[in-house]
Write a protein that binds this DNA or RNA. Structure first.
Lengths: 152, 152
DNA sequence: CTAGGGCCTCAACTTAAGTTGAGGTCAAGG
DNA sequence: CCTTGACCTCAACTTAAGTTGAGGCCCTAG
């Protein structure tokens, strides 16, 4: 049994069938079809989906994940080298996000109870400089959203 | 000049007028009207909006912010005590998010190049236990989204 | 008087990541 | 033969946080 059906992939990865269809439309995974038009996946799709899940937890959007995964083989298994390249980048992204949140938390800790929220003196109130770089732009949203959503 | 117009609030806080309208619909801020139906805000709305921005950076959704701000006075300025109560809670949320991302990063660091992505042995591949609480579900998206949007 | 600026409302659109449902196919089992 | 289960497609809906645009009011300056 070298190949898997959608249902099997869904079961093994915990990702819903509709999400797998969706990933396929977005170009994150690919499938072959049986004579009766059912999807069939090579076994390594499991690893690919796993990588996608990790990246999502790290806060990347599917678009970002897609572009990172793009150069990787679809048919062949993801190699150690491929993974090293990709994971290093993601770890760095994560570090940046962590640094951002940490500095915000530190400011927050310093300001608890200080009542200094006056727009000009508080580091929190005018931290925009600090945060505008990473915090803004098109990704935070998608990104953060992902995180928050988890909690519901 | 004890009162502010929307345009002034927008200018001072960096939040667009349409976003201020939106916050009002969501119950995060409140306004009075002039005889010609224009919004007028008490000066402390600036502080309130500042607090909203900080919370958004911390990763909270407007709904969460609204419920935290709910018990706080709309008319009177936010007191030091109010702020301490609210900011302490947010700092703790932030700490939790930071811890989550940090553990993910550590796993990622440990796994770079190990090629162990096999579904059963890798801490990353089956970290679901760890992360499922905070990381999955429908909310990931929305939350992140807020942050992302800011940047545009 | 009329142009412009600032503001108002309301509806529709946007992105992300999926989910949900309707309607249809195919193969195996009773 | 007919039902059931697994799968297929396609369109529409969902949430979040706003943005955009149309159509309209009021006040001030030229």
């Amino acid at each position: 049994m070298a190949e898997l059906t959608v249902g099997e992939v869904a079961k093994r990865t915990g990702v819903s069938i509709s999400a797998l269809h969706f990933y396929e439309r977005r170009g994150l995974i690919r499938s072959e079809r049986t004579s009766s038009n059912h999807r069939v996946y090579p076994r390594n799709v499991i690893r690919r989906v796993t990588v996608i899940q990790i990246a999502q937890r790290a806060g990347l959007s599917l678009a970002e994940i897609a572009s990172a995964l793009d150069p990787l083989p679809n048919d062949r298994a993801i190699s150690v080298g491929d993974w090293a390249r990709v994971s290093t980048r993601w770890r760095d992204d994560l570090s940046a996000r962590i640094a951002l949140l940490t500095s915000l938390r530190d400011d927050l800790t310093g300001c608890i109870g200080c009542g200094c929220l006056s727009v000009d003196e508080c580091p929190l109130a005018n931290a925009d400089d600090k945060l505008s770089k990473l915090g803004s732009g098109p990704h935070l949203l998608g990104h953060t959203a992902g995180q928050r959503r988890d909690q519901k």
